[in-house]
Nucleic acid binder design. Structure first.
Lengths: 248, 248
DNA sequence: AAGTGGTCTAGACCACTAT
DNA sequence: TAGTGGTCTAGACCACTTT
């Protein structure tokens, strides 16, 4: 079917990339079926006239892509697609925030509140302490799209909190400024239905399926400073993933 | 705070792993803030007395983990956490299928049907053609947990389809047998609410929030052969992800 | 004992960036 | 021009598996 290629030394494409594509092409074509062993690294060195490091680099890439498994002392084997390896990204969700022409952020309100047990637990403050609640609405082409509720610790001396108050573009939340002291975040996708309040704000209907994208942000002292949810009707966003060989 | 470590040559831990941890530790501790430049590769070579390849390997790992960005000719820079890089896995979902003691699969029904436009579009068969509908129930500790509806192309000569009919353990769906001709799969998470039928089967209530995990499987000829949904009440599963520095 | 992948060296040359 | 990351060589030694 497909002729056996060699490495083209005149190509702008690095040798290890060419080798990756050669091997992936053979696997995709069924030359090496799932479970079967690939030629050893030394064989590949001779066959394609490249150094061991270059072969290893290609194999490592296939390993990272989940295409093969390596067993020391035994060989490199083609892996069968494994549904457990699917990885869903927020790309589609994220792209909304990059589109600064059609997407605007409206502050619905910001107020000082008292932490209940739930908020206290998430932000590691004792219930009754002051916290800040910010409600934002992401508007796309003049239509409400995503509703964001965020609870912040009330600690005026903490610059990260003050910075957060000035976020009128949610872009800042998604893509760190490079100067913030935000260290890491945790996210969770939950299935939900819209409440009356949420439906009104989002111009949808109560009981409609929706995603709750929960987040907790931590500063460099490992202290949580923000907990909240992005609430999005289910028909407005989709989380996708692929497993196994992508494309041809 | 934390003393500057050297590479321990007597350790079982490879030098490049030690260097990864040293650099991550320094970034996590704030020694190198987001946006700032890491020491150059040649400086790291001298400082830690390792070869260029070893340093590059460590940097590459940080690159893959999204901790740093490299700019050729300029340097390696600490990256700020980016929400767009969150990756949600099916691990929790998947683990159900591995637990063969507590998890069983019940076939609710298998029947020959005629493809409507929707099924035809997904499986690339003309509407009116015969397809197979399989309905399965994943039972956990004697309680219904996930409902699976799968449409298969009707093509008796196609071994992948015949194999599919014999899947009484969904484990086979998740973790390829190594002999199947399943090449790749596409997944999508959709927000939904339980229909009356689904609620009855899952012993839940109509209108409850739920995930629809849609899948399409392709064989080695790039032909789709299976389309279906895993339907799971929202309170039974959670999709999680982290961004930025994990742990310490 | 032979073969396999895993780690590592000590360089080389190149493309690109900053000055 | 000097410094940076990107690619690559031609080996070495080790841990492990297979025979």
């Amino acid at each position: 079917m497909s002729p056996i290629r060699d490495i083209d030394r005149t190509s702008y494409e690095p040798a290890y990339v060419q080798l990756i594509n050669i091997l992936k092409g053979q696997i995709a074509a069924g030359t090496y079926l799932p479970g079967s062993r690939l030629p050893s690294e030394s064989q590949l060195c001779k066959r394609y006239k490249v150094s061991p490091m270059t072969v290893r680099r290609s194999i490592k890439a296939l390993l990272d892509q989940g295409v093969v498994t390596t067993i020391q002392g035994s060989g490199t084997f083609v892996k069968a697609p494994d549904m457990g390896e699917a990885r869903f990204s927020l790309e589609e969700f994220h792209s909304l925030f990059k589109d600064k022409v059609n997407t605007k952020v409206k502050i619905l309100g910001a107020m000082v509140t008292r932490a209940d047990r739930r908020i206290g637990g998430k932000l590691n403050v004792t219930p009754g302490e002051r916290t800040i609640l910010i409600r934002r609405l992401l508007v796309r082409k003049s239509k409400p799209f995503i509703y964001h509720r965020e609870h912040l610790v009330y600690e005026p001396g903490r610059p990260i909190v003050e910075a957060e108050l000035e976020v009128t573009s949610l872009h800042g939340l998604f893509q760190g400024t490079g100067e913030s002291s935000l260290k890491r975040g945790e996210f969770a996708i939950k299935a939900a239905v819209l409440s009356k309040e949420e439906a009104d704000i989002l111009e949808s209907a109560e009981g409609q399926p929706a995603f709750h994208l929960e987040h907790v942000f931590y500063d460099f002292d490992e202290r949580p400073f923000s907990w909240g949810h992005f609430i999005c009707p289910g028909d407005r966003v989709l989380f996708r993933a692929d497993v196994g060989m992508i494309k041809g």
